[in-house]
Design a protein around this nucleic acid. Sequence first.
DNA 1: AATGAATGAGCTTTCATTCAT
DNA 2: TATGAATGAAAGCTCATTCAT
Lengths: 223, 223, 223, 223
Amino acid sequence: MTGQSVIMSESATPHRQRRKEARPSELLDAALALFTEKGFSATRAEEVAQRAGVAKGTLYLYFNSKEELLKAVIRHTLSSAVADGRQRLLEHHGSATEALTELLPTWWEEVYDSPSSALFKLVITEVRNFPDIAEFYAQEVIQPGLAVIQALLQRGIDRGEFRPVDVEAAAHSLVLPIIMLCLHKHSVGACALAEAMVADPRRIIRSHLQLVLRGLQAHSSSS
Amino acid sequence: MTGQSVIMSESATPHRQRRKEARPSELLDAALALFTEKGFSATRAEEVAQRAGVAKGTLYLYFNSKEELLKAVIRHTLSSAVADGRQRLLEHHGSATEALTELLPTWWEEVYDSPSSALFKLVITEVRNFPDIAEFYAQEVIQPGLAVIQALLQRGIDRGEFRPVDVEAAAHSLVLPIIMLCLHKHSVGACALAEAMVADPRRIIRSHLQLVLRGLQAHSSSS
Amino acid sequence: MTGQSVIMSESATPHRQRRKEARPSELLDAALALFTEKGFSATRAEEVAQRAGVAKGTLYLYFNSKEELLKAVIRHTLSSAVADGRQRLLEHHGSATEALTELLPTWWEEVYDSPSSALFKLVITEVRNFPDIAEFYAQEVIQPGLAVIQALLQRGIDRGEFRPVDVEAAAHSLVLPIIMLCLHKHSVGACALAEAMVADPRRIIRSHLQLVLRGLQAHSSSS
Amino acid sequence: MTGQSVIMSESATPHRQRRKEARPSELLDAALALFTEKGFSATRAEEVAQRAGVAKGTLYLYFNSKEELLKAVIRHTLSSAVADGRQRLLEHHGSATEALTELLPTWWEEVYDSPSSALFKLVITEVRNFPDIAEFYAQEVIQPGLAVIQALLQRGIDRGEFRPVDVEAAAHSLVLPIIMLCLHKHSVGACALAEAMVADPRRIIRSHLQLVLRGLQAHSSSS
DNA sequence: AATGAATGAGCTTTCATTCAT
DNA sequence: TATGAATGAAAGCTCATTCAT
């Protein structure tokens, strides 16, 4: 469902005893998929184990509790795509306009297609039950994510590409729709009849960036 | 899985409907609050009853099961704010620009402040476990919501206020950040340390609408 | 097995809903019997419930955990027989010899026949797993129990009935065998073939007290 | 329940007995310590292995099950101190008084200090769960132990050292406090605050034997 | 109509035991 | 022989639901 190579490995050793190193991430992948699909509380520990191809008890060889598994899932998944795309933006030295039209849509489409997209739903759903997720998420995702976008916008303003806008608010204008599309993908979007409901998310992302870019650009008359 | 339009089915039997209308809306309010805060699965039926000030057994006098309570909560809450704001937009006959700068922000702030804002989180969180919510939500919220925004945008284009843009995509640009802010309010935003994380949502909404409006307006140069 | 009226009550209301007040002590009685027979760890919570005539879940209506049930059993059972017999000794004002030949054997036979006899085994068995039992037991049983016996012996010495002996040690000489007989009753003594192993405990108690009494008395030659 | 003399049955097949003798007595020592401390049921097989310095699987190379390990522990530990002390008493040919004042206290202090002292607790605790322990214990410990003490007392009576007392009961008077002190050592006595609770067990044993000896001796007036 | 004691299916977690290495 | 990853039966505990009052 959420992709990742949960099952694709090792059809040659069908029974007991596989590799201890691979187990944790197989379990994490299975857990991410199920926690995102059904919610943490509605997912049984045994389901996670089954989807990872192991028995119930094996799960507890690697994680002390279901809750610790959740925390590990979040920690594990956050590390990947977000920081990675951020890196690309930091290394970019072209015009801000160019970054908005080329870098951002590419990065966000990757996020949308990756398992990280599921994480947004997971965090939104579970923070209130596990408040220490909030701090971790804020520090690892929200702050650095917004910071890099705000820096980009500020650069555009400094270079004269953009009007002097409320940079903080504008960053939200850019980011929030993509997160919302990720959430949608893993909720209503995953239900049968809602397929035609939202048009191709790629089209929406690119269109959105164009629209905001135009709103930002300096050479239009002010409101 | 089971039925498809379970949520709507009861409006087909208006006989006992009266009794259901009379059902303590305290229970529905309590359920909305708790389901949103902790998730459906993690909320105990007794908690709902307690918060509503009645005993556990009383809940089952009005709802046959916890699941039926969830459906009732969604049905009950959707009826209010969404349809109401839609009405206001339909009755509006001024310029599209005016609608975007005055009507929309006002309505959305009302939604943001109302219990309806919680509903977005609830639906996002629970659709995959209760697929018939999807149909109901799509028909009652997504479709009419997008339709009215798209109509507004189309009107703006027809009147020459806006450039000819991808109306469907632009509607998402307008709507998604708003919904995302509602979700945020009930998840990360409700956690202690994340207060300063996101600036005042009202400022973000107004700023966002201004930005998109500029992007839509005809008198700027095309990309 | 260990007696007490666990089942003897209420054959008129065979199904649900009995008296809330009676439940806890029915459960405590059942728990004492089973914990003593099989040990705390080897006793399943459901067994306790079954023997008390209720369902598994009902147990948890009255005790938060199996461990808390254990503590409650100990607290509840200690209160009765020990303190009671102690009272009798304190109120006795005849000769120490008389107390040893009449009061003590009567009291100890009562303890031996009562459910309290089981408690010795339970405490011996479980203190090391639940160290706070130790403090409670020391303060409620060991200290007051030894104190009253030592006072009795001291009185005998002061009155010239007994030789001046090591009062503390002599108290142990008196008390330890009876406790040991209680332990035996609930361990080896409860097994089929061991019935003839230990002669009638009453005979042993009375004989033991006679023997020690003679050893204490002043008019024999010193060693 | 199942067999009756399971514990003894293996001494009937002396073929593989050699192998069992060779089994790491570290495992048996570790098991005795842990079973005594926490009880059989509350001790995990892996703990035993760990304390013996081997891996979990190794334990099962030597013992087919945790239960068989328990039986082996009891068999192994009984062989040593009890039979040994018995031997010394049988070989003693001085006066009964001398035996009581010199032989017995020495032997019992050895038992008290040896791992055998733990065995009393183990048997008391577990007989009811493993009834065939009872037969083994009765035949190997209780009967020979009481027999030798009773013979000693009878000898004392025959020689005119002791009054003609109830030999069976008097044997219990001598033995029970000693066993009780062993139990105490491994239960309440092992807990922090109970150290001062019971005075030095050596003093109690010696004092007890003196007291009983005086009660037995012929030259005091009858009751 | 309202209550809350009682129930038992169901879930999390543990641990004796196995077996591939 | 020794290991320890894997298993799954079994135990503790929860909670949706019922029903006598």
